[in-house]
Design a protein around this nucleic acid. Structure first.
Lengths: 327, 327
DNA sequence: ACAAAAAGTGGGATCGATTTCAATTGATAG
DNA sequence: CTATCAATTGAAATCGATCCCACTTTTTGT
């Protein structure tokens, strides 16, 4: 494979000059053309490892999420990658399965890669123990954020969104409402807070379950809730993955929604509108979240000193059949 | 940030020796421990760019798919990444949107990265024009493959699977069966072939539509088919994305399945089992596809000379309500 | 106990680019 | 026509590791 020296020789210039046309340095048009021709002729491909080593910037960002199969993260990832490539950067994607050990390992990996920055959806545990300053690269958190702001972050207004679901259910006439929340992320905590607050404001108890963030865990939990002495009349579910579990539980218990149990949750996954008359959900602006995260990262790279900020985006309530008022 | 020289100095050894403990070279236990302590003390992180440049292997693979948001590719990606990280390799993910220009651009990028290998789901157009030998790295195709084998590949037995769907529908008593297929990938072509063959064997006409691989395109096409003078009694749909379009079309046309139109397709996406009594689909072994692709790549790296092979995996027919016999 | 083989270690070249600095060329002004 | 300055270009150092080779130390066999 041709290297820069070969191109230089073929074009009758020095390697420095070739490098300059590569980096858009000052080169006369005549020479530039000659060099570009030589590159084409030799089918030259600059060696990224060499460039990165010498130039000390990798133009690579890390994207660390729990599981790319979660449609929320799938959509965010796609947006992040589009933005990244548009800005000439590469993306390294990591799945942590909400496992703090994997998170630590991938953060370490990011250091070895000397990434320009990282977009990260951390577990609560990691967020509590993380020292972003020691990492050596800026971090933008997504979906989840630390209580006391230390890094940039892009999150949904989770409390408000959860409260909106509750208010909607109340308006539809439901009273016995229970909640199911993920137990590993701050998102679950926040949504629970919004749920509890809204219920309290209505003078109602706010029974809630915290479960592992998997379909199976949610299914089990919801099955148990449905089998309880007095089953809730409506369910608020903290995210799309758990919602899938809830739907499975209802189906296997032979229950209908909203007739037997109303449903409302998060994430406008493609299938939610197809089920019966649709599931009522808070739609998250997934594309915008990814783009905003990438934009914040770029701004941070421009100005390392500016104080960390949190972008809070609003969800959109899509009221559908699963929370319809029962006659 | 500490470099290898600093570690060497701190441990009182030469850089060569530090490198040896990094690469599991021959080092006495005593010295190894001293070096590891120094690494810890200095919080040393090897510079990947430097290692890659010097060692001439990047331990990086490219994964080029049309869209990570397609659940099929999401699942395959996850499997590929798990395997890759298990083998100490990194993954660069690229979305091409079935666009040959983007495919070419990403392949070029892979060359610049000097990737160890690439796992690639190409469009028909690219597969036809691709010269794998000129790329400089091995390619394993997934989901799609060239007619005349030039590279390793992992694919589904598409003809058989499509035929299985047809046979199933026939067995359920359906006769007027139409097909909807993607027009950019060999997968669509193959599945159509299986569909047409099976229909022909039954002495039936095999009306088929080829559409762009998007939900919207499928929705439009199916709407048109449903509005036609004599609408088909059953639909075979070539993949999960198109199936979503078909379902939307049926819904918006106010038609029920299987009462008005039976449905059968590909990809056991989570939601397919939740819709009514479930959608009949061919389940692809998505995890296995990813793992097999990664395994083939590793084997190829071991032995560049062995002749290319294609791994053909079988799909599994999940007969559900959408293709039930109507009384 | 001694020769031969193996294991461990260090020195210095090297991977392929960018960057710094100095040199050259060309343009402009006086 | 020459002095000045800006625009191009080249030479050589450098990024941070690995690898080859030579040298020293230890182990093994007899």
């Amino acid at each position: 494979m041709a290297k820069i020296k070969d191109v230089a020789a073929a074009a009758g210039v020095s390697p420095s000059t070739v490098s300059r046309v590569l980096c858009n340095g000052p080169v006369s048009d005549k020479v530039r053309k000659r060099v570009e021709d030589a590159m084409r002729k030799l089918d030259y491909r600059p060696n990224m490892a060499a460039r990165r080593l010498r130039s000390q910037h990798t133009d690579t960002i890390g994207l660390i999420v729990s599981d790319i199969r979660n449609p929320f993260f799938t959509a965010v990832s796609r947006a992040v990658e589009d933005e990244a490539y548009r800005n000439g950067m590469r993306v390294i994607l990591c799945n942590t399965d909400e496992n703090p050990d994997k998170e630590a390992m991938y953060l370490r990996l990011m250091q070895e890669e000397r990434v320009t920055g990282v977009i990260f959806a951390p577990t609560r545990q990691t967020v509590a123990s993380l020292d972003p300053a020691a990492l050596g690269f800026p971090v933008v958190m997504i979906d989840r954020a630390s209580r006391d702001v230390i890094t940039d972050a892009v999150v949904l207004d989770n409390r408000r969104a959860a409260a909106a679901l509750v208010d909607h259910l109340l308006a539809q006439g439901y009273r016995d409402i229970a909640g199911v929340f993920g137990n590993t992320s701050s998102t679950g905590t926040e949504r629970h807070a919004g749920f509890a607050e809204a219920m309290q404001q209505a003078g109602l108890p706010a029974p809630a379950q915290f479960v592992a963030p998997s379909v199976e865990a949610a299914e089990q939990a919801v099955l148990a809730m449905l089998a309880a002495a007095q089953r809730p009349r409506a369910l608020v579910v903290s995210n799309g993955v758990l919602m899938l579990g809830a739907v499975r539980a209802l189906k296997s218990a032979g229950l209908q929604w909203p007739q037997d149990v109303a449903l409302a949750g998060f994430d406008n996954d493609v299938w939610t509108e197809l089920l019966g008359d649709g599931l009522t959900v808070i739609e998250q602006p997934v594309g915008e979240i990814g783009r905003a995260a990438m934009a914040m990262l770029l701004e941070r790279l421009d100005d390392a000193e500016r104080s960390p900020r949190i972008v809070v985006l609003q969800g959109k309530l899509l009221a559908r059949g699963s929370s319809a008022a029962v006659c």
